[in-house]
Amino acid sequence: MSTIVTRTAVSGAAPAGRSDDFDTLAPSPKALMRKRAKGHVGLIIGTTIIAVIVLMAVFAPLIAPYDPYAQDLSRRLIDPVWGAKGSWDNIFGTDALGRDVLSRLIYGARISLLVGFTAAVIAGIIGTALGILGGYYGGKVDAFVVYLINVKLALPVILVALSVSSISGGSIMALIILLGFLTWDRYAVVTRSMTQQMREREFIMSSKAAGASNSRILWREILPNLMNQVIIIASLDMALIILVEAALSFLGLGIRPPTPSWGLMVSEGRAVMFFKPYLIMIPGAAIFLLVIAINMAGDGIRDVTSPEGRG
């Protein structure tokens, strides 16, 4: 589609009528990418699930049947609709304080997505900046970056997250920054080695010979060539961050009650898990679904973009 549009636009602007203006033009990389994306089942399923969860989070006040904080001790531990005493009033039942599980699940998506996305972006900025600088400048800069990566790799994520969040006291902002600072290593490793390879390519040499500054080369020549990889890592990183957030909340050191968070919901259901297993299975399934959807979408993006990433 786009090639046709482009061609008419150009010939409209310049009606030169060159003799070699034959009508076949190879499809553009973007057109090829769209074509591959349409045929990729995993990408379609993954992005659909993510889209549903994102919409759920955005329109939570409109969708949620109840207030996620409203307690009703007379209606506590009601089975979900498929259970023995379940009803359509509380589709996923209620928890030990009589709060509607579905409403809490819908609001909880906000926390998971907010934490996952923002922390992944923070990690991406830190990691990509370090990786590009180390890979491009080499020498002492690179030695410093490699040192930082090694230090980071030596840190046990959960342990550090636990200790720092126990000190910082569980605000969402602190949690996001903490997770951002704990997961940048993958971006740095990948962007560094890609930049090292690219630095010797002749298009970088041409840009230098044309008088381009280093910052121009980093922004205009190198970064656009890394974006696909960065997006793929970001998807994997986001899934990891959502899991770590859930784990921290489960351990009581992430999101503080009564804020609805999926990890916290699993934690709260733990006391009655042998009698009311749905209380941990439903939020657990939600975490599983979001993480696998993000991974599927990430793999899909890689499959769709990598044939160009090579070139």
């Binding site: 390519r201 002749e202 298009f203 040499m205 010979a209 008088g211 656009p224």
Partner: peptide, 24 residues
Amino acid sequence: DRKVFARRVQPVFQDPYSSLNPRK
């Protein structure tokens, strides 16, 4: 100056598959 030099001397490299940024 690097920029002044660039306006006098320009390269054409060997491998046209590597000398053009694939994203542009």
